[in-house]
Amino acid sequence: MLIGFVLTFGFMIAEVVGGLLSGSLALIADAGHMLTDSAALALAWAGFHFGRKASDDKRTFGYLRLEVLAGFINAVTLFVLVGWILWEAVQRLMSPHEILTGPMLAVAVLGLLVNVGVFLALQRGDTDHVNIKGASLHVLGDLLGSIAAIAAAIIIWLTGWTPIDPILSVLLSALILRSAWMLLKNSLQILIEGAPPDIDVESIGPALCRQVEGLAGIEHLHVWSITSGKTAATMDITLVPDADPRLVVPAVKQVLRDDYGIAHSTIEIDFGDAATAPCPITRPDAEVA
């Protein structure tokens, strides 16, 4: 993952320089797409790296939210970049610029080779891991960007039709915008402590009531992500008369872990008058993240 980030980020800088020297907006747009790939690779590596870093008395969850904050900042930056590329594309369509096809083609071909190398490097890792899968998809998307830049250079070289460069830059911007939107949506969902999209919160209460003997009701259920792939939950539970809390609580945690992948859960038992609260889940205050 780290090798992929170094290669992608390093060539992104080279592609920006090549785009400025050759006058190709498509190369600069492709560099923007490589920035999304670099961000994806960096965040995936950060997930592995910071996930192993111990928590302390000031950061009881460790440093896991750093990768989410970085993702949010990267997403906002990419929206600004897309705006600049679209503005520049309109200006170039109205007033075409000269483009040096030789340097443009050389940089685009080199970019294609770098992306192939990064993809092969990622395949040496655990290809079933969600972070590596996501990073591989980003790199495959950037392969399309490199091919588009190569096509633009060849078309300009053969026909002299320079508008193809800003046109393709707009298409590449669409790829950037899609990646930036997904990054922004996912990071913001974690930052506002929303429920992970792959977990059906409404089904947790009925599932627990069906599977856990001695459980009478559930209130104040909250499900959120500490960082990508690390889900936590809290809830209040009530017990049927004479139920053993030493058996009920571990059983609830087991269902959360096995059925929903929630390894970190905090469960409080309400021994008050609500002990007869009905199953399935009751939420008078609708407090569901």
Rank of each mutant, 00 (worst) to 15 (best):
45 W>Q: 09
89 A>W: 01
275 A>V: 11
36 T>V: 01
33 H>D: 10
143 L>A: 09
83 G>E: 01
55 S>V: 08
75 A>D: 01
206 P>D: 04
8 T>K: 05
121 A>Q: 10
114 V>W: 04
148 A>G: 14
159 T>R: 09
61 F>H: 12
173 S>D: 03
201 V>A: 14
257 R>W: 07
217 G>N: 02
22 S>F: 00
163 P>A: 04
174 A>R: 07
107 V>I: 14
91 Q>Y: 04
93 L>T: 06
137 L>K: 15
13 I>P: 03
282 T>Q: 15
29 A>I: 09
238 T>S: 13
104 M>R: 04
228 S>L: 07
268 E>W: 08
43 L>Y: 01
160 G>P: 09
183 L>F: 03
185 K>T: 10
50 F>Y: 15
79 F>E: 04
193 E>Y: 09
208 L>R: 02
208 L>W: 03
111 G>K: 07
178 R>Y: 14
82 V>W: 01
118 V>A: 07
163 P>V: 07
209 C>G: 11
103 P>V: 03
116 V>Y: 11
152 A>P: 04
128 D>L: 14
31 A>S: 12
242 D>A: 15
74 N>Q: 05
104 M>H: 02
107 V>C: 05
279 C>A: 10
46 A>C: 12
90 V>F: 10
64 L>D: 07
247 L>H: 12
233 A>W: 04
158 L>A: 13
83 G>S: 06
272 G>N: 03
277 A>R: 11
177 L>P: 00
239 L>F: 07
158 L>S: 11
11 F>V: 02
78 L>V: 06
184 L>W: 08
163 P>M: 08
227 T>C: 11
142 D>R: 03
127 T>K: 15
267 I>H: 05
277 A>F: 12
285 D>P: 00
119 F>L: 14
101 T>P: 11
243 A>W: 08
137 L>Y: 13
197 P>C: 05
215 L>G: 00
5 F>I: 06
251 A>Y: 04
